[in-house]
Design a protein around this nucleic acid. Sequence first.
DNA 1: GGCGCCCCGTGACACCTGTCACGCGCACGA
DNA 2: TCGTGCGCGTGACAGGTGTCACGGGGCGCC
Lengths: 204, 204
Amino acid sequence: MSATIKVLLADDQALVRGALAALLALEPDLEVVAEVGRGDEVVDAARASAADVCLLDIEMPGVDGIAAAAAVRDALPGVRTLVVTTFGRPGYLRRALEAGASGFVVKDTPARQLAEAVRRVHAGLRVVDPSLATESLVDGANPLTEREREVLGVALRGGTVAAIAGVVHLSPGTVRNHLSSAIGKTGTSTRAEAARVAQERGWL
Amino acid sequence: MSATIKVLLADDQALVRGALAALLALEPDLEVVAEVGRGDEVVDAARASAADVCLLDIEMPGVDGIAAAAAVRDALPGVRTLVVTTFGRPGYLRRALEAGASGFVVKDTPARQLAEAVRRVHAGLRVVDPSLATESLVDGANPLTEREREVLGVALRGGTVAAIAGVVHLSPGTVRNHLSSAIGKTGTSTRAEAARVAQERGWL
DNA sequence: GGCGCCCCGTGACACCTGTCACGCGCACGA
DNA sequence: TCGTGCGCGTGACAGGTGTCACGGGGCGCC
């Protein structure tokens, strides 16, 4: 058990990663022992560096921060994870906690609170952005079924129903039905709108 | 003429702002004299703090970083601006330079280069991310007409042709023609795809 | 003055989309 | 066992969408 808390940083933007490292380096009881730019490098780097807390951004190429948190929970049960993200979507918070994250912080929070959040997470406490905690309760669960999420995720990139059907290996008619259902559940009238709304709410 | 370079930070994410401040504070010849979270506060803050260089993020609520750069150029001709952004869209680079920015850096760049970029900008040099400079030349100018951009920008949010027509005060048929033209110019087959592609290329 | 380009509008057409109804199979809980 | 919900598929239909052709007007340029 070391005197300092060993922190791993995971963010795809090198500049932000370096900046966060500089910020945390100001704290005498924190030590940045590893930096990675991809979600699939988190577990290996955390093991190699014996990190105590992993700071994970959600938006990363390949494996995102939520999946990385789940991987850390499964592979390194003693390591805590703290998800830091740009967008305060309620769905993100819920999914992050389900993935075993101990904390959830938005990038809007003051810089000084980050170090404190790291300490709390390391102490075994849960840290959740207060502005999101209430929103998350009001929001509730994801009403979309798995197939609806899948179809809507592909629809997010545009393309026709036939193209979507090819990607998800479904009949075009079934794709239309799922899209129609998703449109109804999001209160929209177009699949483009539905995909946008669903993504904003973290339902994808 | 002061010994240190006075830097103003503009980024809507408080955490990133603080982290960048910590990063730049490591350099003895740089001094962060102001931090703002909105584009429309840049000019006033730069004037009040007598900043030499303004570090501007593009993605900001209200006035974005590009518009802020133009405002600084008009109001404070002696102040240099350096645009820092998440997305390396060629169109952003061109528009930033047109707005009078002296530099353009992506958040993917190594942290150490940021301080160097600030020094070069302060010295009157242009700093452009090399990976984007070539792309920008290949890409060329924005092929979309003003009305096409307008219509496509509204189409980005989804909604039907009639809804778009209502927003831009045009006939539905005209909206369809503009969308059709934009679809052709983007090489796509759907307005949702066209809007996405156009945004990725910085054409909006 | 012609010419080209862009903006704006109309009309028509094939095609795609969103919706509804209906069916089948499967898993789960009462 | 039955009912229920979900996934998957089909068929049909009104309405929206993308494309094309055709006008007219304004503007800059040779």
